[in-house]
Design a protein around this nucleic acid. Structure first.
Length: 304
DNA sequence: ACCCAGGCGGGCG
DNA sequence: CGCCCGCATGGG
C-alpha cells in the first residue's frame, strides 16, 4: 500500500458524469463477453489488448461515478476513456433521442448506460458467435475461446495471470476440431473464414469508422456476417451511431412500443429508426434493447 | 420432452 | 428479390 505522497497522476480517480457501470455491463456488450464483473463489489477486470485493466467503481450522486484504476498507467487511463466513451456529451445524446415517452422511460430507467467501444476483431468474433444463440452461452463460448487459444500474460503490478483475445492469425491456424471444442457449433466455419479474411485480406483496424455504408459492405464480405451482425460491429467495434442492429429483441420491442404489437418487416423498422433517431439511432438502440430485455420479456403480449 | 436463443446462407418460386 | 428452412448446443 502506497502512502499519499507516492500517488502518481495516473492513480487519480476518474470522475465520470452520467455513467453507470452496472447497466453498461449488463446490457451485454462485447466487453462483458469476456470481462469479469463483480456486481456486489462494483469491480470490473477486463483485458485490453495485451493488458489487464482492473477497475473499481463508486456511485456518486446525480448518476455520476468515480472510477479507480487499480493497476494504472497513462495508457490504461486513456483506454478507459475510450472504452466507455467518457468524452461523449451524454446530455446532448439524451436530448437528441428523447423523441417520445417510451424512450424517456428507457433513459430514466437506465441513466448512465453507455455504448462501449471495443476492438473490431473481438467484436466481430463475439457477434458471429451471438447468432442464433443466447447471452449466457455466448459468454461461455468466448471465455472458452480465450482460455483455449489466447496468449498468456502476467500483469506486472499485481502478478495476476490472464489471457488476451486470440488474434486473426492465431485463430486462422486453429483446426476446426479444436474450435468446436469451445462450443462454437455451426458457427465454427464462420469464425474460420473471418480469421482467414482478417489475417490475409482485411485489416479491421484500418477501416474508416465514419463511413457506414462502406464499413457494412466490407464486413458483410465475411461469411457469417449479415446485416445484423455487421450493425453490431459498426456500433460497438467502430463507435458509429448510425448502426441500428435489429435482432429478435429489438424487433419485438419496437413492434410492441410503436406498432401496437403488429409484426413489422425489418426493412421498415430500419427506416423507422432512421427517421426517428437519425444519426444517434445506435445510442437509442442500446436503451431500447436493454429496456425491452428487462421489461417486456419474451411473450408476445405484455410479458414479464 | 420441448422450446428458444442479440441470424445467416442457401435454395426455392 | 422475398420467403422458408436447417443449423450446434445447452439451459429453462
Amino acid at each position: 500500500m502506497k502512502n499519499e505522497s507516492e500517488l502518481t497522476v495516473n492513480e487519480k480517480p476518474i470522475y465520470a458524469r452520467l455513467f453507470n457501470i452496472k447497466y453498461t455491463f449488463e446490457s451485454a456488450q462485447p466487453l462483458t463477453f469476456y470481462g469479469d464483473y463483480y456486481a456486489n463489489e462494483s469491480k470490473l477486470n477486463y483485458v485490453e489488448g495485451d493488458s489487464l485493466i482492473k477497475l473499481r467503481f463508486k456511485e456518486l450522486k446525480g448518476n455520476n461515478t468515480k472510477i479507480m484504476i487499480d493497476n494504472p498507467n497513462s495508457w490504461k487511463l486513456g483506454k478507459v476513456y475510450t472504452k466507455f466513451r467518457l468524452d461523449d456529451d451524454v446530455s446532448m445524446l439524451y436530448k437528441k433521442i428523447s423523441t417520445d415517452e417510451n424512450m424517456e422511460r428507457a433513459i430514466s430507467a437506465y441513466k448512465g448506460m453507455r455504448v462501449t467501444l471495443n476492438d473490431p476483431w473481438e467484436t466481430t468474433v463475439c457477434f458471429i458467435t451471438s447468432q442464433f444463440n443466447n447471452v449466457k452461452r455466448i459468454r461461455l463460448i468466448i471465455k472458452n475461446l480465450v482460455n483455449m487459444f489466447g496468449e498468456e500474460h502476467i500483469d506486472e503490478s499485481t502478478g495476476i495471470k490472464f489471457k488476451s483475445f486470440p488474434n486473426p492469425e492465431k485463430l486462422s491456424r486453429v483446426s476446426k476440431e479444436d474450435l468446436l471444442r469451445s462450443g462454437m457449433g455451426f458457427r465454427a466455419k464462420y469464425i474460420m473464414d473471418a480469421a482467414r479474411v482478417c489475417s490475409e485480406n482485411i485489416d479491421l483496424s484500418k477501416l474508416n469508422p465514419k463511413n457506414y455504408d462502406e464499413l457494412k459492405g466490407t464486413l458483410m464480405d465475411i461469411e457469417g456476417v449479415g446485416p445484423k451482425v455487421a450493425d453490431c460491429i459498426i456500433l460497438m467495434g467502430y463507435g458509429n451511431f448510425n448502426a441500428f442492429p435489429i435482432d429478435v429483441w429489438m424487433k419485438r420491442t419496437l413492434e410492441r412500443l410503436y406498432f401496437n404489437s403488429k409484426p413489422q418487416k425489418i426493412k421498415d423498422l430500419y427506416k423507422f429508426s432512421e427517421e426517428k433517431w437519425g444519426e444517434y439511432r445506435g445510442f437509442a438502440q442500446q436503451y431500447l434493447f436493454f429496456y425491452g430485455m428487462k421489461n417486456l420479456g419474451r411473450g408476445n403480449k405484455d410479458g414479464k
